[in-house]
Design a protein around this nucleic acid. Structure first.
Length: 505
RNA sequence: GGCAGGGUAGCUCAGCUGGUUAGAGCACGGCACUCAUAAUGCCGGGGUCGCGGGUUCGAGUCCCGCCCCUGCUACCA
């Protein structure tokens, strides 16, 4: 049994969560559930990023104190993740005392172990009084901020603490190219490698007189820059610096969005090297959810709310659609039309109807008792074992779409099996032995399906599990339950409709 | 501008180091069956594989050029 410490990006507390956040959380949860199934000791952490100026602004706009604001946001986010069935073991927030302690300690370690990695310098830039932040060249047009073209940019110098990122490029490049730090998918790895090869600049890691943040150790005037602060949450959640944090650290996997690859694959490893802590084993950067084929901007985010998406067909259906259709690798599209199509064909007519017809026959022909002692050598069992192989190969590689495809390949195989064996004919002609074999094979297929579909549709998988007469929670099952489902002799019940079809869609 | 990835049936995508009539799922049309949420199974229509050259006995599959899309391009969770 091996340890599997898994994290998602912590979310920024300045607005409601949307489909993009949901994809990441659901994807990570699917991985967590799969690893548990394989017997790993999973520790799954999600949380909130609650510092920085824009949080203050959002709080001010809402007319509440910042702490009250972030408390409110944190519970909103957590509530959504709970509704979507996320099974995180911890919930870290950067305003927590444990995180303050951890950030302070990590910086002090760098100060002690590599004092040269931190130095004070002047940061020079053009400051926009409208945005209240420094602007990069790309954000400036005709000498003015894109957002506030009527305001003059103010050349400003600020004394800051800098981190000597430039010193760590070679080491990180070596770690990534040697595979000690895996960056996936490959397109993300290429980007990072190119970035490092082109040379790294030092970065400022503190801000002057920003009240909403963590004090920089040894300099009361400065607070830790929000990025530096936020990344450290991954070790804070392990209990660092208290003894025993190594039971969790290093992380096996950081799940993030593709937009923040650089921070996780360059800056974060450098910070850890400087503090002489171990590095995470892998970073997976997923793509974005597009809405009707276009970028889901914050302003256009009103097009669909997470509430609507969950209410449409329930949380399991949304999980399934995000992971199967949108995908966890490149960008994917979300439309109501496709969502409805997937729901109807894959979930209602495919998975749901298979369960319905199978359990109905079990009730009708065998009074709900799964035939015992009928072996496991049917054609459908072969298909089941092949599906398991395809499934585990995909899931091990974090190919969640491929995993879902494997599950549904077994759904198809089972539907075909029913058609070919025609249990109703066997019943009519009184071939009891053959009917037993067929129904037994179908019950085993449903058992396998309940187990391997549970990372995707945990709620419905559990309903199926119970309808099959199995005890306990399917999500607590181990892999053996999929390899050799112990369904023989169980009392099934006439199923509820797993995925009801709306009267009119 | 530079770098990277991609453009294959209406939609989402497979097509490893080039090899007979280019595939899957969904959607669409017909047939079969009746256990089932009028579900399922079978058959079928449908593609100049972005465009133009080239290499080769033979190219979505390799080379060159062009067009279009997406991402990264440093302090945007």
């Amino acid at each position: 049994m091996s340890k599997f410490y898994l994290t998602t990006a912590i979310d920024y507390s300045n607005g409601d969560p949307h489909l993009g956040h949901a994809l990441e959380k659901v994807g990570a949860d699917c991985i967590a559930r799969y690893r548990r199934l394989r017997g790993d000791q999973v520790h799954f952490v999600m949380g909130m990023d609650e510092h920085s100026h824009s949080v203050l602004q959002a709080a001010a706009k809402a007319g509440v104190p910042p702490q009250e604001w972030v408390d409110r946001m944190a519970s909103r986010f957590a509530d959504f993740w709970d509704r979507l069935g996320c099974t995180n073991d911890d919930w870290i927030r950067t305003t927590e005392a444990r995180h303050f302690r951890s950030v302070t300690e990590l910086l002090q370690r760098i100060q002690q172990l590599h004092p040269d990695d931190l130095y004070v310098s002047e940061y020079e830039g053009l400051y926009c009084t409208g945005c209240e932040e420094f602007k990069q060249e790309s954000q400036i047009v005709d000498g003015h901020c894109i957002e506030h073209p009527t305001l003059e940019l103010v050349p400003t110098r600020e004394r800051n603490h800098f981190f000597r990122l430039s010193r760590h490029g070679d080491s990180i490049l070596e770690l990534i190219t040697s595979g000690k730090l895996r960056v996936e998918p490959a397109i993300r790895r290429n980007e990072v490698v190119r970035l490092i090869e082109s040379g790294l600049q030092d970065i400022s890691v503190s801000r002057l007189r920003q009240p909403w943040g963590i004090p920089f150790p040894g300099d009361a005037e400065q607070t830790v820059y929000v990025w530096f602060d936020a990344l450290i949450n991954y070790v804070s959640a392990t209990g660092f610096p208290a003894p025993g944090y190594e039971r969790l650290w290093p992380a096996q996997l950081h799940v993030i969005g593709k937009g923040i690859t650089r921070f996780h694959c360059v800056i974060w490893p450098a910070m850890l090297l400087a503090a002489q802590l171990e590095l995470p084993k892998e970073v997976w950067a997923h793509g974005y959810v597009q809405w009707e084929g276009t970028k889901m901007s914050k302003t256009a985010g009103t097009a669909v709310t997470l509430d609507e998406a969950i209410d449409r067909h329930g949380p399991d259906a949304l999980r399934y659609f995000l992971l199967r259709e949108v995908g966890f690798e490149s960008d994917g599209n979300f439309t109501w039309e496709r969502f409805d199509e997937r729901y109807t064909s894959d979930l209602a007519d495919g998975f749901g109807n298979l369960v319905s017809r199978t359990l109905a026959m079990m009730t009708k022909y065998r009074e709900g008792a799964v035939p015992a002692d009928c072996g496991d050598d049917s054609q459908l069992d072969d298909a089941g074992r092949a599906a398991l192989q395809q499934y585990s190969r995909a899931m091990d590689a974090l190919d969640l779409r491929g995993g879902a495809e494997a599950v549904w390949s077994l759904v198809s195989a089972a539907n075909l099996f029913v058609q070919q064996t025609a249990p109703w004919s066997l019943a009519k002609s009184g071939q009891a032995g053959e009917l037993d074999r067929v129904l037994g094979a179908l019950a085993r297929a449903l058992g396998r399906l309940a187990v391997i579909s549970s990372p995707f549709i945990p709620g419905k998988a559990q309903a199926l599990w119970q309808d099959l007469g199995m005890e306990g929670n399917v999500s607590a099952s181990k892999w053996e339950a999929a390899e050799s489902p112990s369904v023989a002799g169980r009392s099934t019940r006439r199923p509820s409709i797993l995925f009801p079809k709306p009267a009119v869609v």
